[in-house]
C-alpha cells in the first residue's frame, strides 16, 4: 500500500485561510478550527504561515502533561488530550516547540490538530491539505513530493540542544538534513513599534 505523508512548505502559503475554514469541518473536532495561520510581520510583509501539529516521535506535549492525557496512535498521530483526563493546565501549550496545542477555555481542555484522524485513518487526506490551493500543505507520497518540488523534505528539528523528529515533513533546500531553530527577528516587533491607534496592521496582528 502506498503511504501518504504530510508536507509543509511555509513559503508557498498565500494566506487564503481555506485551511482554517476546512479544519473546523473535521469530525473529530467539529466546529473548532485547530490549525494556526500566522501573519509573519503584517506591517512589513505579506508572508503568512500555516501550522499543523507536526506529530513528534516523542511528543514534548505528552512528556510535560501531568495527567498523562496525550496519547499517540500506533500509526504515529498525536491525538488531542483525552477528555476524561485533561485538567487544562496548558503545560502542553507553552512547551510545544511548534506552538501547536490550543487550550479551549470553555471546555477546559487542550485540543490540537489530530491530522483529521477520522479521515487519514481511512486513507483520506486531511481537510487542510485537501483544500490548500498552493501546496503549502500537502498530503501525498514521498515519491510524488520529490518528483514535483525543488526542495527536499526533512523531519528533524533542533531547538537549542533539543533534537525533535516529527511525522510531518517540512520542505527545505536540497542537501539540508535538519532545521536548526534560532530566534529570528525581522524588522520591528509590535511591542517596539510607536503607538499608533490607527495602524490597521497592528490591529489585525493583535
Amino acid at each position: 500500500m502506498i503511504k501518504n505523508e504530510f508536507f509543509i512548505d511555509y513559503s508557498r502559503c498565500i494566506g487564503c485561510e481555506a485551511c482554517v475554514q476546512a479544519c473546523g469541518e473535521c469530525d473529530t473536532h467539529r466546529g473548532v478550527s485547530l490549525i494556526h495561520l500566522e501573519t509573519i510581520e503584517r506591517r512589513d510583509s505579506v508572508q503568512t504561515a500555516p501550522q499543523v501539529c507536526m506529530h513528534c516521535e516523542d511528543p514534548i506535549c505528552a512528556q510535560v502533561c501531568p495527567a498523562d492525557a496525550i496519547k499517540k496512535t500506533p500509526d504515529g498521530v498525536v491525538q488531542s488530550s483525552l477528555k476524561p483526563r485533561c485538567i487544562g493546565c496548558s503545560n502542553c501549550v507553552v512547551s510545544c516547540p511548534f506552538g501547536v496545542p490550543k487550550y479551549q477555555i470553555d471546555v477546559d481542555q487542550m485540543m490540537k490538530c489530530d491530522m483529521c484522524y477520522d479521515r487519514t485513518s481511512v486513507g483520506k487526506k486531511p481537510m487542510c491539505a485537501t483544500v490548500c490551493p498552493s501546496g503549502a500543505l500537502t498530503f501525498t507520497t514521498m515519491q510524488d513530493i520529490q518528483r514535483t518540488r525543488q526542495g527536499v523534505p526533512v523531519n528533524e528539528w533542533k531547538f537549542g540542544a533539543e533534537v525533535v523528529h516529527t511525522k510531518v515533513y517540512v520542505m527545505v533546500p536540497p542537501e539540508m538534513t535538519r532545521v536548526d531553530i534560532g530566534l529570528i527577528q525581522i524588522q520591528t516587533t509590535a511591542a517596539a513599534l510607536p503607538s499608533d491607534p490607527y495602524d490597521v496592521a497592528l490591529m489585525l496582528e493583535s
Partner: peptide
C-alpha cells in the same frame, strides 16, 4: 536565550522564518 521564553505565536512565526532563511 531560552526557547521557553518565546511565546507560542512567535514560535510558529519563527518556524516559517527559519525555513525562509534556509532558502
Amino acid at each position: 536565550s531560552h526557547y521557553q521564553d518565546i511565546c507560542p505565536k512567535c514560535r510558529r512565526k519563527n518556524l516559517a522564518l527559519t525555513q525562509d532563511s534556509m532558502w
